[in-house]
Amino acid sequence: MNLIDDDTLQAYVDGELDAPSAARVDAALAHDAVLARRVQQARDVRAQLRAVFDPVLDEPVPARLSALLQPQSAQAATPAAPRVLPVDGGGIGTTRRRATRRWFVPGAALAASVALLAVALWWWQPGGDLVRMQGGQSFAAGALTHALDETLASEPKVNAPVAIGLSFRSTDGRICRTFVLRSPPARAGLACHESAGWALPVLSAVTPSEGGGELRQAASALPPAVQAAVDARLRGNVFDAQQERAARDAGWR
């Protein structure tokens, strides 16, 4: 007989029960292994969430945030301090912020980003050596780094595991390159060069219809998520063969 329902059990775990109710759960726990396991699972969720988010407490607070809390006189002396916006008149979330800030994504896009991360995790298996995580970002590793560093789209390597597509200079100044991993299941992504390596802002599975056979034309095989990432960054033209070679010789800077 189990009189401890889920709400009661959860309240017990979260310290929300009054003493007599908590004592009843304690008593039941002593001889109910199933109940004990449910309690442990509920505790685990909390403990793991804390493990994920508590490190934020120890991160340095970005200067742009702490600057907002400086006394007015100090703010005046700090030209870089962000302006305090009026709340009324639609100041927040309108033009300035829309124009200059990325903001968190709506549900569908969030789901997309979760799916992309799922791909990243799927790569990031023990033994998987194409992606590494650093500071919460995905970076190329191993053979993928090598291909991004060395391979020219103008000199494709037919049997190489990685096909390079477009190369271009992003709106933020970094050089970015699209790539396709040929070995099934085919995956495509965008890599942008920075000091820490090739950051991978987007990774996506290539469905067979998108893949279209041999994936000879890596650029034309890009999944929509990768294409969107390219479109969001592309200003001007993609590199021609000469520019691509020059960029490689300059270390992709």
């Binding site: 994504v105 980003s113 990243a120």
Partner: peptide, 10 residues
């Protein structure tokens, strides 16, 4: 609002 893909890895 357009999904900003660079955030996917972040």
């Amino acid at each position: 609002h357009l999904f900003a893909p660079e955030e996917a890895g972040e």
